[in-house]
Amino acid sequence: MATPHEIVTQKRAAALQRLAARGYDAPSKVFIGMATCEIAAGSKEVMEVFQEALKGGLKNVYVSQKGCFGRCNLEPTVDVIKKGKKPVTYGKVTVDRAKEIIEKHIIGGKAIAEYIIK
């Protein structure tokens, strides 16, 4: 019989496959803060912008929620992780900023320096 360790190893492999099937390996990953604090700061609306963009045909982007990163005064925060590039976190992301991030960074490939948390 398989040991608990072997079972968990299998489960992790299955989880990785499911993640891959959900597009986790996409060239761009976006994580949006969705904890109580982030939502209070407006992250739900930001999430909607990304969801709308996906519906509208935005391709090769994996969009996910994430927990609180700890940057209370800079919320909502959005991480953009592009393959082969340095990951960045944007702070105080509004609906407008979210749209700009999609246009300029995710599609255009150029990070927007002024919104990045240093």
Partner: peptide, 13 residues
């Protein structure tokens, strides 16, 4: 915290 989707056990795994 802030690096995985908390609602996804796959992320945790």
């Amino acid at each position: 915290c802030g690096t995985i989707d908390p609602d996804s056990i796959d992320d945790y795994l």
